[in-house]
């Protein structure tokens, strides 16, 4: 793996590794559905067709450029009816589909 694929130790790990958050595999169907729609948008709109993208795949290091990352934010805001503030555009919220789904659900509650 190239060095730029390493997780950034300066930032908190994605929330799924946080024991306080339920495992998305067994959580309410909302989480799985949010992840599914995020991944569908990434595959259909943001990456070269045919690229495989998994729910734990690092979206930011290689797959998306900065503009695609912003489009993903715009999509999430509209699709899930949430407000995304400038301070939300951080690596830990967008690193993977799992992380973004977790952020979306948190943003819906605030």
């Amino acid at each position: 793996m190239p060095t730029d694929m390493k997780a950034d130790p300066g930032t908190p790990a994605p929330a799924t590794s946080d024991p306080g958050t339920p495992d998305p595999g067994t959580a309410d169907p909302g989480t799985a559905e949010v992840e599914r729609r995020i991944l569908a948008f990434v595959r259909d709109e943001l990456v070269t067709s045919g690229t495989t993208v998994g729910r734990e795949d690092d979206l930011l290091s290689d797959l998306l450029d900065s503009v695609a990352a912003l489009r993903l934010g715009t999509f999430a805001a509209e699709e899930f009816d949430i407000e995304i503030r400038p301070a939300d555009f951080v690596v830990e919220n967008f690193r993977t589909a799992v992380a973004l789904a977790d952020f979306v659900l948190r943003a819906r509650r605030r």
Partner: peptide, 11 residues
Amino acid sequence: PTPATLKMPAS
């Protein structure tokens, strides 16, 4: 900055 950081303005 790492490539991921460069793509997230707040980071």
